[in-house]
């Protein structure tokens, strides 16, 4: 006759067998949250002669800034600090930080939430946006960046602003706002 202790172990083991059914996995194997940095998993994109034209031109970068706001990139990436989406102010990016890689990311989207804008924006707009995104992390010469945004904004010019993390307010201020 089995002891009560052994019986309970048996029951737990039986229950654990049902755990697999509860796994919510609509896409098969989910991609790891932080895949290795680019080029080891993805084949490197071919260098594009247009890259230099876009990222070394203040007009293109400031237009990119306009689209960055119009297309609601701020919704996930904030003003570069990240939030729902990853930060755009650090140096190494999951899917590559060259112009070509960023254009690919914007055009075709990336796993875990980045939507595809190819066909929704023209190629030139995507290149401009990529140039601006790269300027957030100082991949682009800072003299190119416009101090004045194309849209209306209050506060310091972006070229004078310290790159700061997404959470700009302290918890105390947060409470005050709620009240």
């Amino acid at each position: 006759m089995p002891s009560p202790c052994r019986a309970s172990l048996l029951i737990v083991a039986l229950l654990a067998g049902g755990c697999d059914q509860m796994r919510n996995d609509p896409r098969g194997h989910p991609l790891p949250e932080t895949p290795p940095l680019v080029s080891t998993v993805l084949s490197p994109v071919r260098a594009d002669p247009r890259a230099a034209d876009y990222q070394n031109n203040a007009f293109q970068v400031s237009n990119g800034q306009l689209y960055y706001h119009w297309m609601n990139c701020t919704g996930c990436h904030s003003e570069g600090g990240g939030g729902i989406g990853p930060s755009l102010m650090d140096v190494n990016w999951r899917y590559g930080s060259t112009m070509e890689d960023v254009v690919q990311s914007i055009s075709n989207g990336r796993p875990n939430g980045m939507p595809a804008f190819g066909g929704k924006m023209t190629a030139a707009q995507i290149w401009q946006t990529a140039a601006y995104v790269r300027s957030l992390s100082q991949h682009v010469p800072q003299s190119i960046r416009s101090g004045r945004s194309e849209g209306l904004s209050v506060g310091e010019p972006s070229t004078l602003r310290d790159p700061h993390p997404y959470r700009a307010v302290t918890p105390k201020q947060d409470e005050a706002t709620v009240k």
């Binding site: 119009w70 297309m71 066909g119 929704k120 924006m121 023209t122």
Partner: peptide, 20 residues
């Protein structure tokens, strides 16, 4: 309603709902 136009322009009663 599915391509670049709809990203910025609005046409009421269609999926084109751009606001800029």
């Amino acid at each position: 309603t599915t391509r670049e136009c709809a990203t910025c322009h609005n046409i009421s009663g269609t999926p084109a709902t751009g606001k800029v």
